[in-house]
Simulated scan of single mutants.
Amino acid sequence: MFIDTIGRRSLLAFGAAALAASFAGTAASQPSTPLRVILPVSAGSGVDVIVRSAQVALTKALDGQPVVIENQPGAGGITGTQNLVKAAPDGNTIAVISNNHSVNPSVFKKLPYDSLADITPITILGGSPFVLVVNPNKVSAKNAKELQALMKAKPGEFNYGSSGNGTIIHLAGEMFVDEASVKARHIPYKGMGPMITDIMGGQVEMGVGAVAAVQGQIKSGALRPIGVMGKERVPSLPEVPTMAEQGFPGVDVAGWFAVVGPKGLPPAQVKRLRDAFATAFNDPDVKAGFAKRDDFLILNTPEEAGKFLKSEQERYARLVKKANVTLE
């Protein structure tokens, strides 16, 4: 009887120890510190939608590490990026930036960080194609050559809208104006939504928009597409040629989004994060969302991402100088 009692006690003790060890192992395998992803843009923007679409897949790719997304808009992306560069380079704080990161050094007289030296490139995730659109009731042109001829016949009478002074949408519009050697007045708005509304209302004649943002209006006939501004046509608008196809090869611009960390991020953390993003964004459901929005994946190496960010900054600097864009 005594031996049986000891045996039962030993068995219960062993079971409790095994259960505790099991819980300890589970806790150890799932990092308690979340990955903080700073988005220097407002909720509902293109980059926000893209990153949130992969949040669950990213947690899975990081072996269960929670992913916390923080929208920190303001000053053309400067607010959120400033918080990134101040973060510890421990692999638990990153940001997803877009074109404005490479535009800002040229349009702002002073930044609180160095856009290249104070970050660690991880990967260029992908991009969103842009399209030049016009109000069909105010602009008779149906293609880029006709639009150029119309604008040359009425110099200075056309307005083009943008999502804000010094934004990539502004520079994309300026890219066409420069390449076509025409004159147009720039009208900045506080975001793409108000700009699109005013093009449809006839307050401005034309503007550049992300394909996903103007897809519905194009299909309904409220806006007329003039040309895709990247290297390739987009699946949802197969009949709309690129600007290069229409004789304007210098008009080559698309929205892009890149994953970066603070300066000094160790190579092992860079590899861990790049591999996790590559796995998450190749998830079938995430890829299906990309295809639906006409977005495209890049997922290049950290070295390629660094070269790309440098070349983009140099390219926009030349365009900003031509357009004489300056912000305080």
Rank of each mutant, 00 (worst) to 15 (best):
A305L: 05
A317H: 11
V259E: 02
G207T: 03
L132H: 00
P194I: 01
T167W: 05
F257W: 05
P31T: 01
A153W: 03
V240C: 03
G193P: 00
S181L: 10
G77C: 03
I298M: 06
A57Y: 10
A117I: 04
G221E: 10
E314M: 04
A276K: 00
R224F: 11
A57I: 08
Q246D: 05
S140H: 11
G202E: 15
A291D: 15
G261D: 01
S220E: 11
N159D: 12
L11M: 15
T120N: 05
G164L: 05
D48S: 12
P155G: 05
I122R: 08
N104P: 13
K307Q: 12
F176Y: 02
K138L: 14
N159G: 07
A17V: 10
N165E: 11
M151N: 03
S311H: 09
N282Q: 15
E314I: 10
D294T: 04
A28C: 13
D118W: 05
V240Y: 01
G193S: 11
R9A: 14
I169T: 12
N159K: 14
I218S: 07
D48Y: 07
F290D: 01
N71V: 03
N99G: 14
K183C: 06
K231A: 13
G227Q: 00
H101W: 14
A305F: 02
E174C: 06
W256T: 05
E312V: 03
Y113N: 14
V134Y: 03
D295L: 04
Y189N: 04
P284N: 15
A254N: 09
D63M: 06
G207H: 10
F23M: 14
L116T: 15
I199W: 12
L19E: 09
L237N: 06
I3A: 13
P262N: 04
A61N: 07
L125M: 11
A149H: 05
I6F: 08
G15H: 07
D252F: 02
G156F: 07
Q313A: 10
K86P: 01
V131R: 02
A88T: 15
G201P: 04
F290R: 02
I187H: 11
G7R: 15
F158C: 06
A43V: 12
G191A: 06
I187D: 09
S29P: 09
I50D: 03
T279M: 00
L273N: 01
P262I: 08
G216D: 15
Q148I: 02
T301M: 12
G264W: 04
K287Q: 15
A27S: 11
A244M: 05
L12P: 10
D118Q: 13
I298Y: 09
G164H: 04
I169E: 06
E174S: 12
G127A: 02
